[in-house]
Amino acid sequence: MLSNMLLGRYIPGDSVIHRLDPRAKIVSVLLMMVIIFFANHWVGYGLLVLFVLGIIRVAQINLFFLFNGLKILLFILIFTFLLHIFFTRGGTTLFEWGFIQIDSEGLITGIYITVRLVMLLVITTILTLTTSPIELTDAIEKLGAPLKKIKIPMHELAMMISISLRFIPTLMDETEKIIKAQSARGSTFMTGRLKSRINALIPIFIPLFISAFKRAEEMAVAMEVRGYTGEAGRTSYRELNWHLRDTAALIVIIAFGVLLFLVRM
């Protein structure tokens, strides 16, 4: 199941979207989050969906693959949809049975809100699908630079995120190994009563914590002996380069926002 999930996953590629400066992509996503709320009737929503489909196309992402990967969130979407259908009142009553009543307004709002949510999810997923975690971290550090003025340690935060991301696969492997090792000793955390399942997690978590602490300590020593003393006096091997296409991307997004604003009713 987890292998199908796309949230937060990066898939290397060579599209224009992949090559955009991560800062441009993050700013675009933030803009889109606002722009999405400009749409307030079917023309706006139609344009929005077309625009997002266009981005998916340019990013060379397989549409089926994308929606398949987001299937895990289907439950939330259906829940939101039903919530609006049943509890938004107004317009003509379409259906009535006992205390259940569906109004036209409810149906329409339900559809609109769901489209909004899906678009938000798709937009952020496109960002993570086309941008490597390290690029994202770099961009967050650079974009957050002004926050250093108010004593928010952006460099340290970025370093922490970067090392955490780097250790995720290692710790996943480790977890799998420990689960298998305890399972070979007859541990049954997959079956049985809740209480015994929770008890069976102890033999997994304790070794995992011990190993994580050991890794953290060894990592700290390794960083120290390689001369890491924090941000001061440090240069950067990676470089973010702002190109014309990044400016162009932002202009396209803003233009689309203006268009969506103009078709509001």
Binding site: P133, R166, R215, E218, M219
Partner: peptide, 11 residues
Amino acid sequence: FQNPDNQFVGA
């Protein structure tokens, strides 16, 4: 050091 995983800092 000994452990290949615990000294790899970069992404």
